[in-house]
Amino acid sequence: MRRLLARRLLQGLAVVWLVGTLTFTLLHLAPGDAFSYHDRHIPADVIERWRHIYCLDRPLVAQYGCYLRSMASGNLGYSISQQRPVLDILIDYVPRTIELMFFSLLLSFVAGIGLGVLEARHRGGFPDWGSRAIALFFYSMPDFWLALMLVLLFAYWVPILPISGMEDVINGPSFSGWQRLVDHARHLVLPVISLVLLTCAAIARFQRAAMLDVMRMEFVVTARAKGVSENVISRHHVLRNALLPIITVAGLTLPSLLGGAVLVELVFSWPGMGYITAAAIGNRDYALVMASVLVSSVLVVLGNVAADLLYALADPRVRAA
């Protein structure tokens, strides 16, 4: 178990390094840098000096060396567009993205697994094809479009939910602690719903297939022969086995959820990593883009390691190994 963990973490480190290097190369190969679009009134020699300070006047390999050196000393760099150390920005923005991820992942699993079980139990019947059709409808929708339609629905036609930011800007400051919490939760609803609708269809599909796979197995017949009711069979005997593949799916869903979150954060002005990264790319703010890419890849790697560990905990056959 401990060796599995160590191996996975080492692999993860390699993945993060690879992602970082690739992103670095691509980013720096693209034309322009943070100072390309700067104020014309700044003298050329000042800009040159800035370029020199940020290593931008040297060849790509040297820049990469610079970057690695500063990373090794624990310095994530300085955001030119925000005029703040990158670490400070991360501390502000990463928790908000994690909050959004956490609730979205949790809800899409609850919804996806629930739908999958329902579909499998009523295979071929109305609940099966009905819920699959609806889920597929949302799954095939572009993420930003779905987000915009939710805005239209819940902010314009039926204006019951806030569509932007994390808190009420006008009344927020006067709220008590409890009111603030409710207000924050209300702001979470639409971004979370967008992400859940985008991902839960895939989870439901996997869950349905896994349930149907397990239902064909012999121990299900044994359970019936023991006199266990169909309800208990699908909830207890089948689901416990069919959850195993879904744990892996959880790890795989994380990247697409993070990707979707970028656009969803933009649409709902949710001040998270996606929001800030999109802006940073436009500004050629290398340090900030690199940091946010690294954070995403670390999240994905950790998610997959967690999935592996959960799998091992849930499956006695792996636990022993």
Partner: peptide
């Protein structure tokens, strides 16, 4: 082997 549930 297959007639017993592997996870219990």
């Amino acid at each position: 082997m297959t007639a017993l549930n592997p996870v219990f």
